[in-house]
């Protein structure tokens, strides 16, 4: 090979690889950069199922809730904040679906993060939230669950294993589908 061909190859191959990579990444790219921790669009996140990290949360009514107390129930762990528009969007739905599962081994836990107590109380009042909710003041639950934006939901099965993770506002049908699946998967 002549010097020219060698140089040609040495330039062309990396350039082609780079352009290909950029094109691939552009196709791949979904949505774009997330805006400051708010999940506006609904979507499932693939996770490795693993044991849920225990936590204790001081609820808005002053009681303290720990995850171990809920062993044997399907738990929906919902991270939200009063100032977040998509959280407001789905609040009524969550409250409604929670009502539907009364009497079944299902519990919802609302973890209010990056927020203030009084705003949280007003929110719960406004949307008629009846399931246990509390403010994660130090953010330790959010950190333990690796929360990157709100709303973010984790579904924990009756054996205390995190099965599903969703971001963005969730519809009633989706909620029912996942809850049903988890209830049937591990009947006790």
């Amino acid at each position: 090979m002549s010097q020219r061909t060698l140089i040609l190859l040495a330039v062309a191959l990396p350039v082609a690889a780079l352009l290909g990579l950029l094109a691939w990444a552009s196709v791949q790219q979904k949505g774009g950069p997330a805006g400051a921790g708010i999940n506006r669009k609904f979507g499932g996140v693939r996770i490795q199922p693993g044991p849920a990290r225990d936590f204790s949360l001081t609820l808005l009514d002053g009681r303290t809730l720990t995850l171990t107390e809920l062993q044997g129930k399907v738990v929906l762990l919902d991270f939200w904040a009063s100032w977040c528009p998509p959280c407001r969007e789905e609040a009524a739905t969550l409250a409604e679906v929670y009502g539907e599962y009364a009497g079944q081994p299902v519990e919802f836990v609302g973890v209010d993060i990056w927020d203030r107590q009084e705003d949280a109380l007003a929110f719960v009042e406004q949307y008629g939230v009846t399931y246990p909710s509390g403010v994660d003041v130090k953010g330790s639950i959010a950190i333990d669950y690796g929360v990157k934006g709100i709303p973010e939901k984790f579904f924990i099965d009756r054996d205390g294993v995190v099965r599903r993770k969703f971001v963005g506002p969730m519809s009633a049908d989706n909620l029912r589908a996942v809850l049903g699946e988890l209830l049937n998967a591990s009947p006790r």
Binding site: L22, A23, A25, Q28, Q29, P33
Partner: peptide, 22 residues
């Protein structure tokens, strides 16, 4: 471009045109 940054103009369809131009 496919890498997010604090002060970029944000994703847009222009990305493809600029990739072509690149």
């Amino acid at each position: 471009g496919p890498v997010p940054s604090v002060h970029s103009f944000g994703a847009s369809t222009l990305g493809w045109v600029f990739l072509l131009f690149l």
